Simulated assay, not measured.
Amino acid sequence: MLYNLSDYLFARTTGYIGSLMDLVSRAAARAIRTGSERIDQALLDRIPIDAAAEAAFKDTRATIAYYRKTGRLPPELRA
């Protein structure tokens, strides 16, 4: 289910609803076309989305992982 992938989806789309809708729509279409009828992270990893979201993915994912581990933002993001 997609709710199990909330951190991944946020990191992948950098929180932009347009990027999220594009990703989920493309994944659903591919899942139907291939007959798997299942959206999982492996499928989502193969779906390209907008360049800005793709470029920010690794940094956003690292920030989320740091926050989950420490409960704080990374030092470079603290004001």
Rank of each mutant, 00 (worst) to 15 (best):
A53Y: 04
A51L: 08
T34S: 09
Y3A: 11
P75W: 09
I47T: 02
M21L: 09
G35H: 06
G35I: 02
A29N: 11
D45S: 10
L23K: 08
D40P: 00
T14Y: 15
N4A: 12
D22V: 04
A11C: 04
E54R: 14
A52T: 07
T63M: 11
Y66T: 04
A42F: 05
Q41P: 00
K69C: 03
L5Q: 08
T14H: 12
R38Q: 03
Y66I: 02
L73D: 05
G18R: 14
T13Y: 10
L77T: 03
I39F: 11
G18I: 03
L73H: 07
A55K: 13
E37I: 01
A56Y: 05
E37H: 04
V24F: 14
A52P: 00
I32P: 01
I39Q: 02
A28C: 01
P48F: 05
E37W: 03
N4T: 10
Y67P: 01
P74K: 14
I49C: 09
R12N: 12
D22T: 09
R61P: 02
R61I: 03
L23I: 07
L73A: 09
K69A: 15
I17Q: 12
G18F: 09
N4G: 05
R30Y: 01
L43Y: 12
T60S: 15
R26F: 00
P48C: 02
P74N: 07
D45P: 08
D45A: 14
A79F: 11
G71E: 07
A11M: 10
G18W: 06
R61V: 03
T70V: 12
R26N: 11
M1H: 14
S19G: 08
I17W: 10
Y16N: 10
A62S: 13
A56R: 13
L77Y: 11
D50G: 11
Y8G: 08
A29G: 10
R68E: 09
R30A: 05
R72G: 05
L44H: 07
G35L: 03
L9Q: 11
R78G: 05
G18P: 01
I49L: 12
A31Q: 05
L2S: 07
I47D: 04
A28P: 00
Y16H: 11
P48V: 06
K58N: 11
T63Y: 04
R26G: 03
T63N: 09
Y8I: 09
D59I: 09
I39P: 06
D50E: 14
L73R: 08
Y3C: 12
D40Q: 08
R72P: 00
I32T: 01
G35P: 06
R26K: 06
R68I: 02
R30W: 03
T13Q: 13
A27L: 04
